[in-house]
Nucleic acid binder design. Structure first.
Length: 891
RNA sequence: GGGCAUGUAGCUCAGUGGGAGAGCGUUCGCCUCACACGCGAAAGGUCGAAGGUUCAAUCCCUUCCAUGCCCACCA
């Protein structure tokens, strides 16, 4: 007997089990192991962050994969860590300082060192939070290897990468137009720019003989080029290079005509003036024609002296005044107040982007200097090659198209940021000299570049920078290649097997990891990229932290439903790359499944004597047990197949179906009998513990809790994944009992539908199915019932019975026999199908012209066709038999 | 403008070239000694629309409709 409570209480087990996993060091991988490595680098959450539902998805998926591989005998390493999240973290702390200390501009007032100290302090104080939240999900990661993007060893990797790229001519510094955010006083990469539809007035001004349109009159002071499409017939009289004088905002100017194909003749008047300093397109036009560039707006978003009386004004203030001035000059032609366009914002903080030209550091993606598969290739070419060649596989593969499109349009990556929190650029300047190195140059008077690196630069190294030996990395005299060579973890665990992350950071991060790793290491960072979708609410809205009415807090869900239920709910009914909807009912359904596992375990522990072996039974005589074991092996094989193909949702469908529908509702009920043999008990113990094993990657807590009741020395988390047993192949028993099972279902339906006036007790006993002996005795009768209702009639004679249930079966059979079946119609249906099948057989020998086949490889077609023919032959035989029997019945 | 998805039961979603599925919800019957967080059963769908390929299409092809996402551009 057992004193386990009737309902599973996750709270009572989860933290305790977590602690035991950790204290037994079950998840610490060994670099000197001879087992094959299976590595996942955990996408590092923000070090100061809180666990949100997106993290929960990531953790659930990765934990399933890693637990499965670990149980299969791989040396499984799931390496956790955190990211310094440059802009996000700096923002939070700066705002804190502003609010708490009343300092308006903390960077100016406190200085670099103090601000950095405050940020570091904040990071330190909030770092443990996310770690504990990750643990609460049941994540089986190796905390002894936890890393942080700002660790000294990772910092070394960052500097080494920068220096080597610089030496190879892949990193350069130059004045380029960047996405400047005047609010945060930094630039951001193209990928970090969000565009939002806004409505703003669209002005048309007279500009010499032309009319030009703009939403940004405040940038127009310096405009002295007017551009149109070379093929625009309306302006054919003007030649490229023509000049003319005209009245403009601050007086008369000399303007030059430029012809460029970037102009869309359909838009507005087909003519525009350009502001190369503050617009990407204009900058490119200016570059093409060697035009002058002039700054109009400063880095605070205020107008420069070129604007004369408007100098020093913020643009919002200046705009209406400039328009007014032009109106007074009679140059305002028209205003469209309803004009909408996509305005650029910084997605990392919300400021409106004001493009600016600045000296920035860039990674050149087009220089072909990298030795790769025997040639010199550019970063961009390598990015394409590794995916096209299959060295890296994207799951789902439809993201290939998106990926290639992105790479093909990739521009040089701007890696410098004007913020302080992050990896400082290892460039040093002195009187016009520049030195790049992992250490400051000798001599005095050197100053380091004030900028830091894009936060994705350091995370791009994540799969290997985390595996570098921290001690060795401290030794600056040691060449980097040697550090790698002598780092056991790196040698054992890189490249990693799976990178699992959200599709929304495929470009930000996944592509950058491929870029930096193929360059620095010469191998891919990972073999498979599994991309998960976004979590949405029941009605399909994005869950956002800022909107508490829509968001589901994973920590609350763990408290209310348990980590197991949350994990299930995040996997169920979803596929790679697909968004998933999460809502309370789903969590509740998953919690009930955990509870079902619990109660089945409770029953088994009550039923079997202590010490019952959980090893596979060798000789199984009971047909019922044969049915179970056969189905169990089928399920295990299915699960293995689905896991290998990353169809993680399919697995849980299959497992729930078998565990609940077959094992609990059918086998356990039929297995209830007064006298139990040791074989019965062993089958029960073996089947249940096997199911615990295959369920474990999904629901680690409840399965571990029950496993601990079976007196095994090892914890479930490190037990061996079950193997299908050859001696458990019982296809005949499986089919036969399957029929009995179906038949009983039909008898129950009959009972409910056409109440046969049966004794209430007998009728009810059909549900509890505690009449194993009777069912076994009357199998033939039951099967006949089943076949009748399936119209697969055999001439099996009913076995006479002498008790009430037997009489009941007889009665039911009589009813079916007497029921008015339209035999001719049934026969007709079957004949139709028979014809269709035989037609296929006739044609398949000569004709392969099925388009479905043509899309596949020839060998596959032949094999499939053979298979199909064999299958169809069987079907045809069965159909013929059925029709014969029916015709006999119909008389 | 370019690209990618999705459309199957009331809801959320699986699935397959040959007999339409699950969970939740609904209805009916059951406190049966693991579990009422449970058991048994039922109802409910022209598999978005129209064409095509095929002996056979929910599945493959084409077009259309609807919805969502990504990328680019918008002076």
């Amino acid at each position: 007997m057992t004193d386990l409570p009737k309902a599973y209480d996750p709270q009572a087990f989860e933290s305790q089990i977590s602690a035991e996993w950790e204290s037994r060091k079950l998840f610490q991988a060994k670099a000197n192991s001879t087992r094959p490595a299976f590595t996942i680098s955990m996408p590092p959450p923000n070090a100061t962050g809180q666990l949100h539902v997106g993290h929960a998805v990531m953790l659930a998926l990765e934990d399933i994969m890693i637990r499965w591989r670990r149980m299969c005998g791989d040396e499984a390493l799931w390496l956790p860590g955190t990211d310094h999240a440059a802009i996000a973290t700096e923002n939070v702390v700066l705002r804190q300082i502003q609010e708490q200390d009343g300092i308006a501009d903390p960077r100016a007032t406190l200085g670099r060192d103090e601000v950095l100290r405050r940020i570091a302090e904040y990071v330190e104080s909030s770092r443990g939070t996310i770690r504990n939240q990750v643990k609460a999900m049941g994540s089986s990661c190796d905390w002894s290897r936890e890393r942080y993007t700002m660790d000294p060893a990772l910092n070394r990797c960052v500097n080494e990468s920068f220096v080597r790229m610089y030496q190879d001519g892949l990193i350069y510094r130059g004045p380029r137009i960047v996405n400047w955010d005047p609010k945060l006083k930094t630039n951001v990469s193209d990928d970090e720019v969000d565009r939002k539809e806004v409505q703003s007035p669209f002005y048309t001004f007279q500009y010499g003989p032309f009319q030009i349109g703009t939403v940004r009159p405040e940038t127009k002071f310096g405009d002295k080029y007017v551009v149109m499409h070379p093929d625009d017939a309306r302006y054919a009289e003007y030649q490229h290079g023509d000049t003319f004088e005209c009245e403009w905002i601050t007086g008369r100017i000399m303007a030059t005509v430029i012809k460029d194909e970037a102009i869309d003749p359909e838009f507005g008047t087909g003519v525009m003036t350009i502001t190369p300093w503050h617009d990407h397109t204009d900058f490119e036009i200016a570059e093409r024609h060697g035009l002058d560039k002039e700054a109009i707006i400063d880095f605070d978003g205020k107008l420069l002296p070129v604007a004369q009386e408007f100098a020093g004004m913020p643009i919002e203030e200046a705009r209406p005044k400039i328009v007014e001035k032009l109106r007074q000059k009679g140059l305002l032609v028209e205003v469209d107040e309803k004009y909408t366009h996509a305005k650029a914002f910084n997605s990392r903080g919300g400021g409106a982007i004001e493009p600016q030209i600045r000296e920035q550091w860039f990674i050149d993606v087009n220089r072909k200097v990298i030795p790769w598969k025997g040639e010199h290739r550019s970063l961009r070419e390598i990015l394409i090659d590794v995916v096209r060649s299959g060295d890296i596989q994207l799951v789902p593969d439809r993201f290939n198209a998106t990926y290639f499109h992105w790479v093909e349009n990739l521009r040089d990556w701007c890696i410098s940021r004007q913020i302080w929190w992050g990896h400082r650029i290892p460039a040093y300047y002195r009187e016009g000299q520049t030195e790049i190195g992992i250490q400051p140059p000798d001599g005095t008077g050197w100053g380091q570049d004030p900028d830091t690196l894009d936060t994705w630069f350091s995370s791009a190294l994540w799969t290997w920078s985390t595996l570098v030996d921290p001690e060795l990395a401290q030794d600056l005299s040691l060449p980097f290649e040697q550090i790698l060579e002598r780092s056991p973890d790196f040698r054992k665990f890189h490249p990693t097997q799976v990178m699992e992350t959200g599709y929304d950071i495929l470009f930000f991060w996944v592509a950058r990891m491929i870029l930096m790793t193929t360059y620095m290491i010469g191998e891919v960072p990972f073999q498979t990229v599994y991309l998960h979708g976004l979590v949405r609410t029941r009605d399909g809205r994005k869950m956002s932290k800022s909107d508490p009415t829509t968001a589901i807090d994973p920590l609350e869900s763990i408290a209310d439903y348990g980590a197991d239920a949350l994990r299930l709910a995040l996997i169920l009914g979803t596929g790679p790359g697909q968004d998933l909807r999460l809502y309370p009912e789903k969590l509740e359904a998953c919690r009930r499944f955990a509870n079902k596992i619990w109660n089945a375990g409770r029953y088994i522990l009550m039923t079997i004597p202590p010490g019952t072996p959980i090893t596979p039974p060798q000789e199984v005589r009971s047909e019922l047990a044969q049915w179970l074991l056969h189905g169990l092996d089928q399920t295990v094989r299915n699960v293995q197949g689905s896991l290998s193909a990353y169809r993680l949702s399919e697995v849980i469908d299959a497992l729930r179906g078998f565990f609940w529908g077959e094992f609990c509702d059918w086998y356990l009920e039929m297995d209830k009998k007064p006298e139990r043999s040791p074989e019965d008990n062993q089958v029960l113990a073996y089947a249940y513990t096997t199911l615990l094993k295959v369920l474990h990657p999904y629901v680690p807590f409840v399965t571990e809790a029950l496993w601990s009741q079976f007196g095994q020395p090892q914890m479930l988390a490190v037990s061996a994944w079950p193997e299908p047993q050859p001696q458990h192949a019982f296809p005949e028993a499986h089919a036969r009992i399957g029929l009995v099972k179906e038949a009983i279902s039909q008898i129950r339906a009959l009972r409910d539908k056409a109440n046969l006036g049966l004794d209430k007790k007998i009728a009810a006993s059909l549900d509890s199915a505690r009449h194993t002996a009777l069912f076994e005795e009357h199998q033939d009768l039951i099967i006949r019932l089943a076949r009748l209702s399936e119209l697969e009639v055999r001439s099996t004679e009913p076995t006479p019975g002498n008790d009430a249930l037997s009489a009941y079966f007889q009665e039911a059979l009589a009813r079916i026999d007497a029921s008015a079946v339209d035999w001719s119609k049934e026969i007709e249906t079957l004949q139709k199908r028979l014809k269709s099948e035989t037609d296929f057989l006739e044609k398949s020998g000569r004709k392969l012209g099925n388009p479905g086949f043509l899309n596949k490889a020839p060998e596959a077609v032949v094999l499939e066709l053979k298979d199909k023919v064999a299958q169809t032959q069987k079907t045809v035989e069965a159909l013929r038999l059925q029709i014969q029997e029916l015709e006999k019945l119909a008389g």
